[in-house]
Amino acid sequence: MSDIGTSYVRQQMAPPAPAPSSAVGATAWLRQNLFSSPLNTALTLVSALFIAWVVPPLLSFLVFDAVWTGENREACIVPEAGACWAFVKAKFSQFMYGRYPIEERWRVDLTGILLVAGLVPLAIPQVPYKRQNAIFTLAVFPVLAFILLYGGVFGLPTVETSLWGGLMLTLVIAIVGIATSLPLGVLLALGRRSQLPIIKTVSVVFIEFWRGVPLITVLFMASVMLPLFLPAGVNFDKLLRALIGVSLFSSAYMAEVVRGGLQAIPKGQYEAAMAVGLGYWQSMRLVILPQALKIVIPGIVNTLIGLFKDTSLVLIIGLFDLLAIVQSNFTDTNWAGPTTPITGYIFAASVFWIFCYGMSMYSRYMERRLDTGHRK
């Protein structure tokens, strides 16, 4: 009897059975993300129909029917011609450098290489020597960049800022604005939360003033009105005035983003820093600000992306950034055509999107890396 009973008892563990096909793989992903409910199913179908309606003609215009080569507008005015990429190809160097002298453009290229050489090691956590990279990027590189781009020393011919333009000028304004608005915003946020009445009042007045006026007004005032208040014979470079205006304007918005992070830190963190004997600046540098800045990474990046896109407003004061230099080339009679303007705008939009999306992706990476919260 015992032999009969034991013959039905498994002596070894059965091999694990594969999961149902509806629970793993592409089918499970589709059911979970696109067809999980009647509403999601309807939205998925509507989105698919919209994509099928928009994408084919868009691809035809941008790729299949596009004109890729040509010497002038004649190549782009053929019947049913798509985007005139030949126009972008012919004007590409001007889009990148503006009116910077052709024989001196190697200086712009070298500046870009130095910027990448400083930023990439600083942005990758695994790369060592962070302190040295930070010193080079924040202290040495700005001096080298000014010497290379402006010249006037070491035998380099002077290139006036009125000749700067294109993507180069866009990056100059954006990088200077980003590099100055973040530390100024942190100081203003600390000042607004200060217990000293004078410091708090000055910070509040500064923030509310700059947030209360549009950037286009700030640029106009910096370019046109500021020289009226300066002594006779004293004048600032137009680009320098724009950089100051953009930096002060963006720092006010950055201050409110940082202040939100400071207010999110529990009071116990401040008390713990005081309990171990840290002074105000030590507690802010070692305890409070690292946590606050980690919390507001999305807000900081959102402000920086807005600043990068707002650089196109410098056209109002006669500076030709990427978008302005693209628009100015529409008047070239050699390339005047029905598809030239839309092609130029698509090119400019693509460049802006690449930089903005890159900043967004890096911020998401940093959020995941710095996420030390306890999840259930």
Rank of each mutant, 00 (worst) to 15 (best):
R285L: 02
N302V: 10
I288E: 00
L293F: 12
A292F: 14
I305L: 02
G279N: 03
I295F: 15
G299E: 07
A292P: 15
R285D: 10
A292H: 11
G299L: 03
K294R: 14
A292D: 07
R285M: 04
G299R: 00
L304T: 05
V296C: 09
I297M: 15
I305W: 00
Y280S: 08
V296H: 06
G279Y: 13
V287D: 10
G299K: 00
I295T: 13
W281H: 12
I288D: 01
L289D: 01
I297Q: 12
L286Y: 11
A292Y: 07
N302I: 04
I295M: 15
G277H: 10
W281T: 05
I300K: 13
L293Y: 09
L293R: 14
Y280T: 11
K294M: 05
A292N: 07
I305Q: 00
R285S: 12
Q291A: 10
V287Y: 10
V287R: 09
I288A: 00
V276T: 15
M284G: 01
S283C: 09
T303K: 04
M284F: 07
N302P: 08
I288S: 00
V301T: 10
P298N: 04
P290Q: 07
I305F: 00
Y280G: 12
K294L: 15
V296D: 02
V301R: 15
V301C: 11
L278V: 08
I305P: 00
W281L: 12
L286V: 01
L286S: 03
